[in-house]
């Protein structure tokens, strides 16, 4: 069963940009409210597959999206 990671970004526009870039590159992503336990600059975060975190990091860096951090989500934090 897949595990999720959460990408923290500096603001909503960056989250929306990340969403577009990932979607166009064929990744499965979802915008989620940033889980409270991760201190973040932004109320919105991008949920990805944890196994794809390195590719995602690269893709977002290439697309000039600033990444604050990428955390692993444990099962109790799974949205939906």
């Amino acid at each position: 069963m897949s595990q999720y990671g959460v990408v923290l970004v500096p603001n909503t526009s960056s989250a929306l940009k990340a969403e577009q870039l990932l979607r166009r590159a064929g990744y499965t992503e979802q915008l989620i409210p940033t889980p409270r336990e991760f201190s973040s600059d932004c109320g919105l975060a991008v949920r990805i597959n944890w196994s794809q975190r390195d590719e995602v990091r690269q893709l977002l860096a290439d697309g000039k999206v600033e990444i604050v951090d990428i955390h692993k989500l444990d099962r109790s934090q799974l949205t939906k």
Binding site: N11, T12, S13, A15, L16, K17, Q20, L31, I32, P33, T34, G43, L44, G63, K64
Partner: peptide, 30 residues
């Protein structure tokens, strides 16, 4: 937009982001 994580806030943010994208394309900016 950008204030809450609920779907209406995200929809507003997306509409605004899409305008940014269209303008960036118009002036050839990445």
């Amino acid at each position: 937009p950008g204030r809450s994580g609920h779907s209406l806030s995200i929809a507003a943010g997306r509409a605004i982001y899409e305008t940014r994208e269209a303008l960036a394309e118009l002036v050839n900016l990445d």
